[in-house]
């Protein structure tokens, strides 16, 4: 496996703050994987997101993205490799219409007009927004705006897409719509996805989950592994997916279960075989 992001012993402290926002964090991201970084508000996950895009620089340690060590000299090269979708759908919509917004990054990159037309259209097709070319942002739903933001990123053909709480301001259908888009892109385009989130349904879709707490790397594992520690997660201010929560409640009621189930069918089956079928 090819490592696309390597974070080595990174620490960061905001000015006038006594505690570290990030403390001695090391982690790697492999090409083509979907990594979820979870943590409650103030766990350091936003600081980490900002660091991956050169908005902050580590005070100690190194961040390597696509073979380049993050520094002020090559931050623009790094931004070409890593595209970001932010939290607030309105505050990242630069263009006056959908197509202008997608074109904005291409204009910055100095792409020829004819090629731009093509790339705008194909990016919008990939996120299912091609029918909205001339729509103005205030006529779009939050989910649609976020899909346009995703199109703006993929039009620039980065290797990695970073979602910084990109679904937290959306309604359930918007969230669903954005996650589905990302899942498709990851599959078809082989994108590496990093999603920073406190939405557990979102984290559950990832290949690997990293839990941050108070600037430290608390634990990491597959979603299934992570959600086994349901009570610890609750202590960290995080929730757990429904079937995990129900597994816990059933176990408290004295039902026999082998694990915290991650999948509803699985849980039903096990309730049945261990407790009802005789």
């Amino acid at each position: 496996m090819e490592t696309v992001i390597a974070i080595e012993k990174v620490s960061f402290q905001y000015p006038n703050q006594t505690s570290f926002a990030l403390q001695n964090i090391s982690l790697h991201v492999e090409k083509g994987e979907w990594l979820a970084i979870v943590g409650h508000n103030g766990s350091g996950k936003s600081t980490l997101a900002k660091m991956l895009n050169g908005l902050h620089y580590p005070q100690t340690g190194n961040v390597t993205i696509g073979g380049l060590i993050l520094s002020e000299e090559n931050v623009w090269l790094i931004r070409e490799k890593l595209g970001m979708v932010f939290q607030n759908p309105d505050n990242q919509f630069v263009g006056t219409t959908v197509q202008d917004d997608v074109a904005f990054g291409l204009e910055n990159a100095g792409v020829e007009q004819a090629e731009m037309k093509e790339r705008v259209l194909s990016a919008l097709e990939k996120v299912g927004m091609a029918a909205f070319l001339n729509q103005e942002p205030h006529h779009l739903s939050g989910g649609q705006k976020q899909r346009v933001a995703i199109a703006s990123v993929i039009a620039l053909r980065p290797d990695i897409i970073l979602l910084d709480e990109a679904t937290s301001m959306l309604d359930p259908s918007g969230r669903e719509e954005v996650m589905e888009t990302i899942r498709e892109l990851k599959e078809k385009e082989g994108l590496t996805v990093i999603s920073i989130t406190h939405d557990l349904e979102e984290a559950a879709k990832a290949d690997r989950v990293i839990v941050l707490n108070e600037g430290n790397l608390y634990t990491e594992g597959t979603p299934r592994e992570i959600f086994q520690m349901d009570k610890d997660l609750l202590k960290l201010g995080l929730g757990v997916p429904f079937s995990v929560q129900l597994s816990q409640l059933l176990a408290d009621e004295g039902l026999l279960l082998t694990q915290r189930h991650f999948n509803e069918e699985e849980l039903v089956r096990e309730i049945w075989t261990l407790n009802f079928a005789k």
């Binding site: 908005l55 932010f86 990242q92 990054g105 620039l156």
Partner: peptide, 18 residues
């Protein structure tokens, strides 16, 4: 921040979509 993340660094070398 979002503009910077999408590579905006002023008018130099920029092309026009419209």
């Amino acid at each position: 921040v979002a503009m910077e993340a999408r590579g905006y660094k002023g008018g130099e070398g920029r092309t026009k979509y419209r």
